[in-house]
Write a protein that binds this DNA or RNA. Structure first.
Lengths: 219, 219
DNA sequence: CCATGTGAAAGCGTTCACAGCG
DNA sequence: CGCTGTGAACGCTTTCACATGG
């Protein structure tokens, strides 16, 4: 076993994928799974599954495979999903509303407990199980409500100040949907989701497929 | 200059980031930019910008920097964004509706021309500038409308069949929002966006920051 | 003199292949 | 015997450092 602490970033990014596959296996009442089968369900290579899991410890049984329930527990523990996390949505536009109604959050232990917007017309309106509050109150409410995750769904121009307010309130991690680069202190985890960027990347590969076919190219 | 064709995947994933920064520069009437400044705005390292751009050709001027307008054109060309792309949204739920109303698509040359759902209550209802059609018609409509991109926003259980129908209609690329792994032929480009997974990855780093005060972030 | 463009070095991540254990 | 766990090989990415050219 590798020294356990220090899990590579690439491995961390795949653990939720394994978790998803393992949850399905549990529903199918499958108690044990080999690395190759789990790999098939997660869409990766078998050796990769074994190496990734070896970073968590030696949880498999040679000649048999991995215990599904045990692995689910261990991955959940490593990802810090054992206790619920409190989420705030900043920006009550289309995307913010869709996220608030999204059913996948509670299932995974993420609870939306606050929402914010600058638009006076939106403030006070119902928003999932909470109510939209003014952005000016954000830092206070986030601190009071012990929010640990902020989802930023404001326009690009407002993103950095929204992030700053969330950080001031004591948020530990931020998922930024605004199409702009924002910065946070090193103590706060940050990730981006940008639909436009995903589509542009896809566009490149679509185009290359055209050329390859047309040219009957190399590779 | 490197022989131009064969741009590394990691570079392709950053080109849209540069494009975003360059568009802002153009709005600010800035005509020329150095690799270090562009890097600052895109949140990456200067050497990386230079190496990435060198894959497209020698578009900079030593001692001066890069011409903003020229670079915008070249990156757009490489990403295949020169002409508009026709998009279909499969699944008219919360997320599908939010995507249909999302303002960022037209600005980037992505036009939503069709939407599909299985729910009879939704079929026929307005959906952005189009109308929801039955999933059973999908392959035909996608072919007729010359749709090249499909956004999959159906529940996990329906994702693979939705993808198969989109592929049958002749779609060139797919952006999958359903929380499950799907497969496509090698000729179709595929990417995943999964909110739950993003939150779980963030959760890991949040937790690690708690344990060790100093934390190297993700991304 | 300044900033690009690029070899070379260093760092990561993936895949192979097999020893070793249940 | 089957499947894990892991060194070692390989390939990709990032970063460095500097020659090169406007």
């Amino acid at each position: 076993m590798v020294t356990a602490r220090r899990i590579p970033v690439a491995t961390v990014a795949r653990l939720p994928l394994y978790l998803r596959a393992l949850d399905e296996l549990a529903l199918e009442r499958i108690a044990t799974i080999s690395s190759d089968e789990l790999a098939g369900r997660a869409g990766v290579n078998g050796a990769q599954v074994r190496k990734d899991l070896s970073h968590l410890g030696s949880y498999g049984t040679r000649g048999v495979g991995y215990d599904v329930a045990y692995l689910v527990r261990e991955i959940n523990r490593q990802l810090g999903l054992s206790e619920n996390q409190r989420v705030a949505i900043v920006g009550a536009g289309n995307l913010g509303q869709a996220l608030a109604r999204y059913g996948g959050f509670p299932a995974r232990g993420f609870e939306v407990v606050a929402a914010f917007d600058t638009d006076p017309a939106k403030i006070g309106s119902r928003f999932g199980s909470t109510v939209v509050q003014p952005v000016s109150e954000m830092a206070t409410v986030i601190a009071d409500e012990k929010v640990s995750v902020a989802l930023i769904t404001v326009p690009a121009a407002a993103a950095q100040s929204a992030v700053d307010a969330a950080v001031a309130g004591g948020v530990r991690s931020i998922l930024n949907f605004a199409p702009t680069t924002v910065s946070v202190p090193a103590t706060v985890a940050l990730r981006h989701v940008d639909l436009g960027i995903e589509l542009q990347i896809l566009s490149f590969y679509t185009r290359r497929a055209d050329e390859t076919v047309a040219a009957a190219g190399p590779e």
